[in-house]
């Protein structure tokens, strides 16, 4: 997994609550047996005017000019600003794969659905939970300052504005230390767990007596 320390990038505001994983990556693209290549179909139904299917040449499709991700001022965005309950619905990890493939490395919202939140960390995406009022403030700042970039610093656990922004942004965020550590180091969790193989075996040996039908 790619390490995450700090990024400075354009932030795209997606002003909509309860964005579900079906919207992030529609089901027809789940048929792929690969982990990459989902980026062009991120938010497919909102991003394009026609109906997308796997195998289409996305560069030839008509884009929806009203959809925020298509606006020139947000091109190259790596930070996604969202509303509450982002990533609800299906557990598909294709949703963070699509976001990551598109280039998103940070998502800021007042709340995330649990499974999606978890899946982000496995894919080098940092989901940040902030108070609703702070998120409101960020929406206003991002919409008001075209071309401005935000810096997300995981080591310092801070979100900072660059000089081009009218108001100064300096927001701290909380994060569980294990997840922070894995992101900073780009760690393979399976490898970490296998270091505890003896503990797992000891647990199994104990359980064999208590629940023998499972062994």
């Amino acid at each position: 997994m790619e390490k995450f320390t700090k990024i400075t990038a354009v932030t795209v505001p997606l002003d909509r609550a309860n964005v579900d994983t079906d919207a992030i990556i529609p089901k027809q693209f789940l048929k792929s047996i690969k982990r990459s290549g989902f980026g062009p179909n991120l938010f497919d139904e909102w991003r394009y005017l026609d109906h997308g299917e796997p195998g289409m040449d996305n560069s030839q499709r008509a884009v929806n000019p009203d959809f925020v991700l298509n606006k020139a001022r947000y091109s190259g965005a790596q930070i996604l600003l969202a509303r509450d309950n982002f990533g609800c619905g299906s557990s598909r990890e294709h949703a963070p794969w699509a976001l990551e493939d598109f280039g998103i490395r940070v998502i800021i919202a007042p709340g995330f659905a649990d499974i999606f939140y978890n899946n982000c960390f496995k894919n080098g995406i940092l989901p940040i939970i902030l108070a609703e009022s702070t998120v409101d403030q960020l929406f206003q700042a991002v919409e008001a300052n075209e071309g401005a970039r935000l810096t997300v610093d995981l080591e310092q656990q801070k979100i900072l504005s660059d000089e081009s922004m009218d108001e100064k942004i300096d927001i701290s965020f909380e994060l569980d230390q294990f997840r922070r550590h894995c992101l900073l180091e780009g760690l393979d969790e399976i490898g970490l767990t296998l270091e505890h193989s003896d503990d797992i075996r000891a647990y199994e040996n104990k359980q064999k007596k208590i629940t023998p039908w499972l062994y």
Binding site: R35, S91, R92, E93, P96, I115, N118, N119, K122, N123, E189, I190, T193
Partner: peptide, 9 residues
Amino acid sequence: GIGTSEVEH
């Protein structure tokens, strides 16, 4: 429910 990385895990 879990994601695919967790399925592998």
